[in-house]
Design a protein around this nucleic acid. Structure first.
Length: 612
DNA sequence: TTAGGGTTAG
């Protein structure tokens, strides 16, 4: 890089020294430039110059040269309130809440009273700190004492603070309490509602707001996506487009995340093409989302293409690709990629380890799993899952007992799931007792226990569990399956007759049932929870949501086209064996994504090799 | 100089 300050062009053009420095700062882009400029400022004795220091601090901020910003600020003997504010802004915007608050205290100790520009950044820092409610309230008190509570920026910052720290009531109180609300006020409040999972309230505000900008749309689309309501997120995205609002990078990140959740690869591909032909930068967030969308949509090849094409990768990029490979049963490739990641010097985090252990679980790499586990003692939960699903239920339980920390619900859940597969009633009851203490409202735990009793024919116990569920007002998550046809998501629940093509779907199902029987299919009725007769059990199995989605897929797509179905829970054993046979009968590849992994059914077999 | 929206997991 050429030395900026010795450029004859610059020296001759700017006689006035202050103006020269200012011009150089305005064209500088790197830390190297800053060092040169700073040396010159010192030589010329300009380090007390407020105007120049202000510009230099802003440059430090935009190049993330925080240590240099501290150095610069420390050399000013009597900083003005404006300079304090800029320094506080640099710290706050660079995600250093502790330093921000320390500097704020230092400012007050130097007898410089804060002004309306100080508080927004101090409040932002409060929102980023864990013990923030009391701290935030203390600063709120100072805002009131100093008479700034009506400042619109500060008011918005307070709403944002309370909504980010879980005090939605306080945020709403402030929101309701002002006469003039700008678009930021509304956006902050809506984001707060979605963050606290109050989707209805967030939507109500969004519908009522007088004027919306791209951030408003992004907030509500992200809100739905993050609350697991991807079809609504995608609907809003379509509405946003029909209203002529141009999406930006942030919009598309949430849209892709919704596509990944819903397995909507058609919409996802459209977004990918949109990015390529628009002015949107394919940044690291977007690339990561594309990887996730393609792997969850069933196209590992496209995911890998995006990953391989990335110039810069974050830990999230590696995690998404590793989990993608694991999800598709490519355990060895996932492990290889993990090793590549370590060689690239990227520090793995807990999510990486979860991905790697999942890869070992799905590919039966028990020994490798044990080896990696030694590197990740804190990830006991995954190890319990690996052992449990591999059939080593007792060993898994022993491991839980040996754990140096209290096992969480996930660990007991893994053990319970394995007990179901391997029929360990006593251990299952033990796991349920632990689980119900940790998460009394989770219906899944009751359902698993009930399934174990049902599989063993202990109907009295099934009834007891059902009564307990009723008594505690626990509701089971209904199983549902969805399929994307021409960019629309069609969702089915068990016995669903609400679809407009319902008659055709049931005709197809009946036709398939006959073909299945002829091919030697025997229903696995122990997948049915209820205490009903065998024939009724068969009927209940026939109308499972995944079967409805597959039947709809068959009648809505051309012969030979693959069928992709997304299920919110695990695929049941009966649907698994029926789908294997179906893939052969109808000569189609059927790809089912369940809650944990993919099943690629082809020519009568499944990629999971009946182990999942 | 001043506020709001983004990715990966069992």
């Amino acid at each position: 890089m050429p030395p900026l300050l010795h450029s004859p062009f610059i020296n001759s053009k700017f006689r006035d020294i202050e103006e020269e420095i200012f011009s150089i700062i305005s064209i500088s882009t790197s830390f190297n430039h800053i060092k040169q400029i700073h040396a010159r400022i010192f030589t010329l004795g300009l380090h007390q110059n407020n105007f120049i220091t202000t510009k230099l601090l802003s440059l430090c901020s935009s190049t993330s040269s925080i240590n240099h910003a501290c150095l610069t600020f420390r050399h000013v003997s009597n900083p003005t309130v404006g300079l304090w504010n800029i320094f506080i802004r640099v710290l706050s915007q660079n995600n250093l809440p502790d330093e921000t608050l320390k500097t704020y205290t230092l400012m007050k100790n130097s007898q410089i009273p804060p002004d309306n520009f100080t508080f927004p950044f101090v409040l932002k820092a409060c929102a980023a700190l864990p013990p923030s409610p009391p701290l935030g309230r203390a600063i709120h008190g100072e805002v009131i004492r100093t008479g700034f509570k009506t400042d619109p920026y500060i008011h918005n910052s307070l709403i944002d603070l309370y909504s980010k720290t879980g005090c939605l009531k306080e945020a709403l109180f402030l929101f309701e309490g002002i006469a003039v609300r700008d678009v930021v006020t509304w956006n902050s409040m809506i984001a707060g509602c979605f963050r606290r999972e109050d989707v209805e309230k967030g939507r109500d505000l969004f519908d009522r707001m007088p004027e919306r900008n791209v951030v408003s749309w992004n907030t509500v689309i992200a809100g739905y996506a993050q609350n697991g309501k991807s079809p609504e997120a995608l609907r809003l995205f379509r509405r946003m487009q029909s209203e002529g609002i141009l999406p930006n990078e942030v919009t598309l990140v949430s849209v892709l995340s919704a596509c990944a959740q819903a397995g909507a690869i058609g919409v996802g591909k459209w977004v990918h093409r949109y990015i390529e032909r628009s002015r949107i930068t394919l940044d690291i967030y977007l690339s990561n989302c594309l990887i996730d969308m393609y792997s969850k949509g069933g196209s590992l090849k496209d995911a890998r293409e995006v990953f391989d094409g990335m110039i810069e990768r974050s830990v999230v990029s590696w995690n998404s690709m590793i989990s993608g490979l694991a999800m598709h049963g490519c355990g060895e490739d996932a492990v290889l990629l993990f090793e590549e990641m370590e060689q690239a010097g990227v520090e793995p985090n807990d999510i990486t380890y979860i991905g790697v252990l999942c890869a070992c679980t799905h590919a039966r790499l028990i020994e490798e799993g044990r080896r990696y586990f030694k590197q990740m003692v804190e990830h006991y939960g995954c190890m319990v899952d690996l052992l449990s699903r591999g059939g080593c239920v007792i060993e898994a339980h022993e491991l839980i007992k040996r754990m140096p920390v209290s096992p969480d619900a996930g660990i007991w859940g893994s053990l319970l799931g394995a007990c179901r597969t391997h029929g360990h009633i006593e251990l299952a009851e033990h796991a349920v007792v632990q689980l119900l203490e940790l998460e009394p409202g989770n219906a899944g735990n009751y359902v698993l226990l009930s399934n174990i009793y049902a599989a063993k024919g202990h109907w009295d116990n099934v009834e007891q569990v059902r009564e307990k569920m009723k008594g505690k007002k626990v509701q089971k998550t209904p199983g549902s399956s969805s399929i994307e046809i021409e960019s629309s998501i069609h969702e089915f629940v068990i016995g669903d007759k609400s679809h407009t093509c319902s008659n055709e779907i049931y005709d197809k199902l009946n036709e398939l049932a006959v073909q299945l029987r002829l091919a030697g299919y025997v229903p696995e009725t122990d997948s049915v929870l209820h205490d009903i007769c065998e024939e009724e059990k068969e009927n209940a199995l026939n109308v499972h949501s995944e079967k409805l989605a597959i039947a709809f897929g068959l009648i809505s797509t051309a012969p030979g086209m693959p069928i992709r179905v997304i299920k919110n829970l695990r695929i049941c054993r009966d649907c698994h064996s029926a789908t294997k046979l179906l893939s052969k009968i109808v000569e189609r590849e059927i790809i089912v994504r369940d809650r944990i992994r993919f099943h690629h059914f082809k020519d009568g077999t499944c990629s999971c090799k009946d182990f999942w």
